[in-house]
């Protein structure tokens, strides 16, 4: 069981001294510093056959002050998915550019630049990608308060006077107690 996965992990560990683990069948993940990520990706692409970049995604660890970037690559020969993860500082958020390894990385990196404000030195393309005329903080950062922004920019429709609290109405009708965890969402 999991021989392929273990073998991949061994190769990467011996080559780069990375940490990593086998998540489950056909899923392997490794962690490393951000400077090593382009080297790892180039190596798995050229030598191990991980030619398919599925996507690049970002997780905002606001409490730690970090962004976690996840590069998902796939091998059509091994049928294995490899996650290469790295954590970078939130401020300033700078990450080495990999669009010379995969052209399509350009799209993901432009999106990350716009939505999270991560800078990729040497990235080609307009600053404006999906959003139009955006002059606030990048909207996918967790400290961007989207409801405050919406209230400030758009017109909130006031609710009806006789609007009922849905949760209370339903529990009253069915005769159940409101569960403890749900009480903090209750209106009053």
């Amino acid at each position: 069981m999991l021989e392929k996965e273990q073998k991949l992990l061994e190769i990467l560990k011996s080559a780069f001294q990375v940490e990593g683990k086998v998540i489950r069948n056909r899923r392997v993940e490794i962690w490393d510093h951000k400077e090593m990520v382009p080297a790892i990706l180039l190596m798995v692409k050229t030598q191990l056959g991980y030619k398919h970049l599925n996507h690049i995604t970002c997780i905002d660890w606001l409490e730690e002050g970090k962004f976690q970037l996840v590069y998902t690559v796939f091998s059509h020969t091994d049928k294995l998915t490899l996650f290469v993860k790295t954590k970078i500082d939130r401020d300033p958020a700078i990450m080495p550019n990999i669009d010379d390894i995969w052209d399509q990385a350009n799209t993901y990196e432009r999106e990350l630049r716009e939505m999270y404000g991560i800078e990729f030195p040497g990235l080609v393309g307009d600053q404006e990608f999906i959003l139009e005329d955006w002059d606030e903080m990048p909207p996918m950062r967790r400290d961007f308060k989207t409801d405050v922004y919406a209230e400030k920019t758009f017109f909130a429709q006031p609710g009806r006077e006789d609007a009922q609290d849905v949760r209370e109405t339903i529990t009253k009708r069915s005769g159940e107690e409101i569960p403890e965890f749900a009480k903090k969402y209750s209106r009053d």
Binding site: T146, T153, F155
Partner: peptide
Amino acid sequence: YDSYNTINVLEK
């Protein structure tokens, strides 16, 4: 209603 990129009240 709280999205940063959709308007709320069309009539405005």
